[in-house]
């Protein structure tokens, strides 16, 4: 075991480069999966005919598959089907599809938790269905869904490590290159765990702070 050698400036900056890629992957996939998750969740809540059932079947299938399989499929399966995609975007695609399916379910149950009386009152006071959805149901339901959605975001950030199987140069990939020296394995595992921990713990604490002032 060689802690000093493992934490050389070269290695540290190489890990930081990897962290940069990890964060870029995570932020982009978080944003996209949130948007699509809300959209799909709202469509399924509103029971839009046909579309709702189709999306339901897709979401149900994706939620029941391992992310690792989706990442692999997006990277090598899609091109085989004649859909060229870059390594970066294949990773974004797989992460987004998987997490959007998760988030859409959270959003849907959040919306369903909004009391029926409230919806009826809004409709009775002259709001249209879409207005009720946008101004009443979405804001209230979403606020209730903040904690599970944030933990889904944290899951996503952790899940970016899985793209290591398609050799995208993120944190885990770069860590593994450094771990080519066996004396560095243990020190680097500890360091990388600390980095992930710090980022995720900060994220969860910020989210907690955001939640508390309300009510």
């Amino acid at each position: 075991m060689d802690f000093i050698g493992a934490y050389s400036p070269d290695n540290l900056s190489f890990l930081m480069e990897g962290l940069g890629m990890t964060l870029r992957l995570a932020l982009l996939a978080i944003a996209l999966s949130f948007i699509f998750g809300c959209l799909i969740g709202a469509i399924r809540y509103a029971r839009v005919p046909v579309l709702s059932q189709v999306l339901g079947a897709i979401v149900g299938t994706i939620r029941n598959l391992p992310l690792l399989l989706l990442i692999f499929f997006a990277r090598f399966g899609l091109p085989e089907l004649g859909l060229p995609i870059t390594p970066f975007w294949s990773a974004i695609l797989a992460l987004t599809v998987f997490e959007a399916a998760m988030i859409s379910e959270l959003v849907r149950s959040g919306l369903q938790s909004v009391e029926k009386g409230l919806v009826e009152a809004a409709r009775a006071s002259g709001l249209s269905y879409m207005q009720t959805l946008w101004h009443i149901v979405l804001p209230i339901g979403l606020r209730r869904m903040v904690p599970p959605i944030v933990s889904q975001f944290i899951s996503l950030l952790k899940d970016t490590s899985l793209v290591v199987i398609v050799s995208l140069a993120e944190l885990m990939h770069n860590a593994k290159i450094i771990m080519a020296d066996f004396d560095f394995v243990f020190p680097i595992l500890i360091l990388v765990a600390s980095i992930y921990f710090l980022v995720n713990y900060t994220l969860s604490q910020v989210a907690r702070r955001l939640e508390t002032p309300q009510h």
Partner: peptide
């Protein structure tokens, strides 16, 4: 709990 919830499964 905090440790294992905040690091990736792969790690």
């Amino acid at each position: 709990v905090e440790f294992f919830r905040n690091i990736p499964l792969l790690l």
